[in-house]
């Protein structure tokens, strides 16, 4: 299914931003929030894994039911290396466009990469 991807600061991501090798930080950033109705349509429940793919890259994340309403058709990923795994760097202003990127979301059984693993993947 086609979605609009937004990335944003969250309280949890901010609380552990200086502790990036911690389990707390992993939990706060290797995830995405979706509207409950969209989750139902994809057969997803809290804690399931999804593969989110943009034209730039693809990443596996845990999915969470949005407590406040992330609207239908929107996926929200907290700021961090997981979000950046699928975002573009090219930009007319020099500042990347971290929000409103088109993406696909599919339920998956694949594992979510640990912080170590995703760093290795990104760094090559």
């Amino acid at each position: 299914m086609e979605f609009t991807l937004v990335t944003a600061r969250t309280m949890e991501q901010g609380m552990f931003v200086e502790d990036k090798l911690s389990e707390d930080y992993f939990k706060a950033t290797a995830c995405c929030e979706m509207n409950p109705e969209d989750m139902n349509a994809l057969g997803l429940k809290d804690g399931d894994r999804v593969r989110v793919t943009t034209q730039y890259g693809s990443v596996v994340l845990y999915v969470k039911r949005s407590v406040l309403d992330v609207p239908r058709g929107v996926v929200m990923i907290p700021l961090g290396i997981y979000a950046n795994r699928i975002l573009p760097s090219e930009s007319g202003t020099g500042t990347p466009i971290y929000k409103n990127v088109r993406c696909r979301v599919e339920k998956t059984d694949e594992e979510v990469l640990s912080i170590e693993e995703i760093v290795r993947e990104v760094v090559g």
């Binding site: 200086e18 502790d19 990036k20 090798l21 730039y56 890259g57 700021l79 961090g80 290396i81 950046n84 795994r85 699928i86 975002l87 573009p88 760097s89 990347p96 760093v119 990104v122 760094v123 090559g124």
Partner: peptide
């Protein structure tokens, strides 16, 4: 490495990088 789009982070791994920071990141 955490906050830039991934494709440019790749270049960081290829050049010498100096970090000044209190915390491991």
């Amino acid at each position: 490495v955490a906050h830039f789009p991934f494709d440019v982070v790749r270049h960081m791994a290829k050049i010498p990088v100096i970090q000044i920071d209190p915390h491991y990141n």
